[in-house]
Amino acid sequence: MNMKTGTLKQILLITDGCSNQGEDPAAMAALAREQGISVNVIGVMENDTIDEKGLQEIESIALSGGGISQIVYSKQLSHTVQMVTRKAMTQTIQGLVNKELQQILGNSTSMEDLPPDKRGEVMEVVDELGETSKLEVLVLVDTSASMKHKLPTVKDALLDLSLSMNARMGDNKFSVFVFPGKRKDVEKLLDWTPKLEVLTKIFPKLTTGGITPTGPAINEALGYFHKKRSLRGLLSHDDESFFEETV
């Protein structure tokens, strides 16, 4: 097995509140997790706070999506987006490594049970994988009316994300979707690409408004990973599916 060539798949959801249409987003996040895609959620606040219901939804999406959630003021968005993406990568890799450990050392063993020195050695492997793995991030941006004035900040945060991730040794691919779309629940803004700089031109033209169909948006995003995967499946190596099976 060669974990170095594995691909980490993430959905990054950026929203400022509660969904109000379609399937339960947490259920859709669980569906993603089943297919080896982790779902991270960033809740963007202005000066106000997100209401309790929105807060709960954000937490439960990340929890059932095997990802990380974080509530931030829009000023800190850039720093948080790259940090959350990174942390989620480490978490996924660590999950894999833990699984490996359990296979070798028995069911009850995880990283926490190891003596600190051994833990350090395992962490070296995790860090190494975090640096070299391929990464695919599908960014899902809530463009409901209340997000309108936060969009420039979102754009900056995504540029910053590509700056951080492209400093890694492993390859990256990003794609950007917004919801609600013009006609559909979700609309593709940017196809898989290693660089997000193009967003600078696209983002200012975005129109906002309407409903917040978070669940259906996650579901459709999944389809986009599916298509890619089946295509790649034709030429994929065995180890490529490793990251997808586990987690």
């Binding site: 850039s78 720093h79 990174r86 640096e131 910053d160 700056l163 951080s164 991730m165 492209n166 400093a167 890694r168 040794m169």
Partner: peptide, 23 residues
């Protein structure tokens, strides 16, 4: 050297000021 900077503070980060990569 050659790996990505994982921890940084924006004000002191070359990438934040658009003056280079985070390698």
């Amino acid at each position: 050297f050659g790996r990505s900077i994982k921890e940084f503070t924006e004000f002191f980060d070359r990438g934040y000021w658009g003056m280079g990569s985070r390698k």
